[in-house]
Design a protein around this nucleic acid. Structure first.
Lengths: 412, 412
DNA sequence: GAACATAAATTTAGACGCTAAATAAAAGGA
DNA sequence: TCCTTTTATTTAGCGTCTAAATTTATGTTC
């Protein structure tokens, strides 16, 4: 065990090096490294306010623990004089994190190093419903195994795993009463699927993770008051206020179940579902539209993609559908904007790319619905947004609990 | 200036007493004292985790600064053996705080000592609108002066003042752009009214202060996820999530302006206004009702009080009005409950006492509107709820900035 | 009332975490 | 080679805190 003291425990007394172990400083330095990559002593002095002696001592300490590694002395470009600075960075070999999106239809896993760089990404569709719990468990395990394999890492290298699920999760990571993953998730994620690995497993609502992802490195980077709507099939919202995720007492904050009470909305259907529904309606009404050609003669199954494509090609029926969807989204965003007063509302999920076609309608309507319309943007994350947020949550956990975790290649 | 060091400054070096000055400990001890009243060294050991030596040293230090006083050695009942414990408490003479509610019609001031005990309370109605800004300023100054007078304190004893206003205030205490107190508040509270005194003046939205008050010592005591609705004339909501006030990016969180979008609500009218409106409607329709008798023959002005009284006496028309109000409130609470997922929703403001007559309707309807109905309660604060919350905000400020403030009777 | 028991305060020694200042080291440039 | 620059390292020492020993103030018991 490495020397570390919180209160009254033994500490190995080194005569030469000052013992720089204060927890807050360790975390601060780790945080700076995660944000900036390789850092020098001078960087840390500026970022943390510590003395050089202390800053370097913290780095040496973290290096001894395995969290940090020192880079060989390649000089930074631009500086030419003086003694070369030592450079430290979060040790990529200290371990990795696993971020998962366990949805209705698909399981996605992202493996990332401690700087957040993606090392591997694997997706697999679940068996068509009704899939057995055993089948779903097996799919998830396969996804995890092949993601680790692709990253070339052993399960023991994983320091924390976070999982996004489309259900209500409270701020302690427990699935809320009444939402015990009953629909398709009754598969005991923590107890059945991940218990073998011995990882810390964090559950969180998928929309909340999407919000974390956007604020981390998406269009909402650095925005402190942010709402992210997963708007594909069902509307779900992740809320960040003053930089912190909102949960409410049971984790239900951001649920839009009462949208049925909102005029002109009437349900919590998402963009893709509405496009399908109204697309089918148009076909059934025998209206002339490009959608029919795109769907093809055989089936009557409209997918959202066809509606967006037809609209892009100028089809008026499809454009009318998008207009209707845009109006509805504008109303949802207006309610959200007034109740929460976010600076920015991000539309995310698998439909995000298509959703940009709705932006003109939404931004046109918003000022008519609310006096303080938020900015509206479309996520650029694609369908990895939830898994990316899970990575971020796991990274936060690792940083917060670094002193309780053992790096993958910790020195003896 | 008392010896205090944050970083590298001079400190008076006492040879005998250990110098226990770490800011976090000072605040922790002050916080325990404010919450518990008189405390002993042992209490502090349990509450803060410090050693006895340190705990007592902190108390001595705070005493020397004037923030704390030591009580004469009256033994606590129950303990009989051993050396009597020294007992310390927040020094009431260290100063006071001022909490104000500057509403449309009335200005209320509360003076409280540093334990939160009310020392004086004064209210005065503004001149009937349209009152001049000068008249409103004069009223506020009179209220402040007589409250301090009633408490027997000089203006210099005030360590901080907080003011609740019914407009949008962001989390930095600035009135949001577009809401610059334009309606009736364009009186330059900080610049014109309070600048003479030299106090730190904190502005906050009235509903937010009501939420602070309820969580401090009302029906929401200790509830971490709480919504408080000021429901008299206009609906306004203060939101506390995980123990922290929500503001949103401009302070607009909890605004219910978009209620017009909500089915069955249609406006942000409060309980009193609706009662008046529908009461007048009933009279105009010539329906037989006790309300008419209570109003009297001369006028046709229905006040909310009459409607509630008639309903209490069994009048069916009045009861019907309350039922309608209850249904509307239930819808508002349902939307609030789903979006924010609070544990408890408190109805507050001047109408709070009457509002308990609405509770049966609300609690009956809620489960039909939302799957996760919050608890609903009625505030017991009466019309001092906003001023009480202002006191609490000012106390928080004093505690947080104690080391930058100078107690009223600080030793030379 | 003297001896004991108890609970708390106080003193003492020393560890830890840091800073500031002095010193040393590792470069480039004249 | 010597100077300049930039950074690292060492040294001394201060402030904060803890743990343990000691003292103090009280009640209890014989």
């Amino acid at each position: 065990m490495l020397p570390y003291k919180v209160k009254g425990n033994d500490v190995s007394t080194s005569a030469t090096t000052p013992q720089v172990l204060r927890l807050a400083n360790l975390k601060a330095v780790l945080s700076v490294m995660r944000a900036n990559g390789a850092v020098t002593g001078t960087d840390l002095i500026e970022a943390t306010g510590l003395t050089r002696a202390t800053a370097i001592a913290v780095c040496d300490d973290l290096t001894a623990r395995g969290w940090v590694r020192e880079l060989p002395g390649e000089r930074l470009v631009g500086t030419t004089k003086g003694r070369p600075a030592r450079r430290f960075e979060f040790n990529p070999a200290a371990g990795c994190v696993l971020g998962m999106d366990v949805g209705m239809a698909t399981a996605t896993a992202l493996v990332a190093d401690l700087r957040g760089q993606t090392l591997a990404r694997v997706s697999e569709r679940f068996d068509k419903p009704p899939a057995t719990a055993a089948s779903r468990r097996a799919t998830i395990k396969r996804v995890v195994a092949s993601a680790l394999d692709e990253a070339g890492l052993a399960p023991s290298a994983v320091l924390a795993a976070a999982i996004g699920v489309s259900t209500v999760v409270d701020r302690h990571g427990n699935v809320a009463a009444g939402h015990e993953l009953s629909e398709h998730f009754d598969i005991g994620l923590q107890t059945e699927v991940f218990s073998d690995y011995g990882w810390p497993v964090l559950l969180e609502n998928d929309a909340n993770l999407a919000a974390l992802a956007e604020r981390w490195s998406g269009v909402g980077t650095g925005v402190d008051d942010l709402a992210v709507m997963l708007a594909g099939e069902r509307l779900g919202t992740g809320l960040i206020e003053s930089g912190r995720l909102l949960h409410g007492c049971n984790g239900g904050a951001g649920e839009v179940g009462t949208l049925e009470l909102v005029d002109g909305v009437g349900s919590q259907d998402g963009i893709a579902r509405l496009a399908r529904y109204w697309g089918n309606e148009a076909l059934a009404a025998d209206r002339p539209t490009l959608i029919r050609e795109l769907v093809g003669p055989g089936t009557s199954r409209v997918s959202a993609r066809f509606v967006f494509e037809a609209a892009a090609r100028g089809d008026e029926v499809a454009q009318g559908i998008l207009e209707r969807i845009g109006l509805r989204m504008a109303r949802v965003i207006a309610v959200l904007g007034t109740f929460f007063n976010p600076e920015l509302v991000v539309i995310g999920g698998a439909v995000a790319a298509s959703a940009s076609a709705l932006l003109p309608t939404i931004t046109r309507e918003l000022p008519r619905l609310t006096a303080t319309p938020p900015r509206v943007a479309v996520s650029e994350f694609g369908d990895a947004i939830v898994a990316a947020g899970a990575v971020r949550l796991a990274l936060d956990y690792v940083e917060e609990h670094a002193m309780e975790l053992v790096p993958a290649d910790a020195p003896a």
